[in-house]
């Protein structure tokens, strides 16, 4: 009886794998299809000619990839710069209305994105921020702060206070004690916040469109233009490009989040 259990289990896992990897496989097929018309199950012609077009000196892919990475990294930096002190203060200091402050970071999410970003675009236009990398970074940061402040608050709350007091008692000033004791212990949580903000920024579309386009080309915008024009090859190749930094980032983080660090996340 139990020996036959692998059959439903195998089917279940197969279905799950298909759900996750099926669309990606389709993406892969499209990326290398020269010709693929309706009744055929597979492309009739394979090749790299679209890759050549995407990466040609005239193609927008390189610029879009560069912009997307720059914006994502700057967004992570700005978000952490704001959410490390904010998270620490929310976790440690006796602030009144703590829950209210945490909720206020949700406000940008409480309204339809389009409405918010159209207005932001209008305001940014007055300050000359429209169509600049800085403008897009600010928009992405506002979006990413919810995640990073909440996660950072949780990360700092999980670090026992007396470790920092012990450092103070040894003669460390408040900043030194934070740097030597609290920050290293909160690092896994902060890294998790960084991953989320990075991935959010990478495929954020609405804000990039209203604030960035057409001066700042980003990967999701390139993808949108290509897909809208019915050019599935270009769209698929762009989508694959979008996957590369995500996977790279995951691998990097996986290297950092080794056993002893990971073991403390759950505690």
């Amino acid at each position: 009886m139990t020996r036959l259990l692998w059959i439903p289990r195998g089917i279940g896992l197969g279905l799950l794998a298909f759900l996750i990897f099926g669309p990606l496989l389709n993406l892969l097929l499209w990326a290398f299809a020269e010709k693929w018309f309706y009744p055929n199950a597979f492309p009739s012609d394979w090749g790299f000619s679209y890759w050549g077009r995407v990466f040609s000196p005239r193609g927008a892919a390189w610029e879009a990839l560069g912009n997307s990475l720059t914006v994502a990294l700057l967004t992570v930096a700005l978000s952490l710069m704001l959410s490390i002190p904010a998270g620490y203060a929310l976790a440690r200091l006796p602030l009144p209305a703590k829950a209210l402050i945490l909720l206020s970071f949700l406000i940008p999410q409480a309204f339809p994105n389009l409405t918010v970003y159209v207005n932001i675009a209008r305001i940014f236009y007055q300050f000359g921020l429209n169509g600049t990398i800085a403008g897009v970074v600010i928009v992405h940061t506002v979006h990413g702060l919810v995640l990073s402040v909440w996660i950072a608050t949780a990360a700092f709350s999980a670090v026992p206070r007396d470790g920092e007091e012990a450092a103070r008692s040894m003669g460390a000033g408040p900043f030194r004690a934070f740097r030597d004791v609290t920050l290293p212990q909160a690092l896994p949580g902060l890294l998790a916040a960084a991953i989320f903000v990075f991935l959010e920024s990478l495929d954020e579309f609405t804000g990039s469109y209203f604030v960035g386009a057409p001066d700042v080309q980003m990967l999701p915008l390139t993808l949108f233009t290509a897909a809208g024009g019915g050019n599935y090859q270009i769209a698929s190749i762009t989508a694959l490009l979008l996957l590369v930094p995500s996977i790279g980032f995951m691998l990097l983080v996986e290297r950092f989040l080794k056993a002893d660090v990971l073991a403390r996340v759950g505690k």
Binding site: E165, A166, P184
Partner: peptide, 10 residues
């Protein structure tokens, strides 16, 4: 120097 009940080790 203070020694804490929880030891407060890092």
């Amino acid at each position: 120097s203070m020694v804490f009940q929880s030891y407060a080790l890092w």
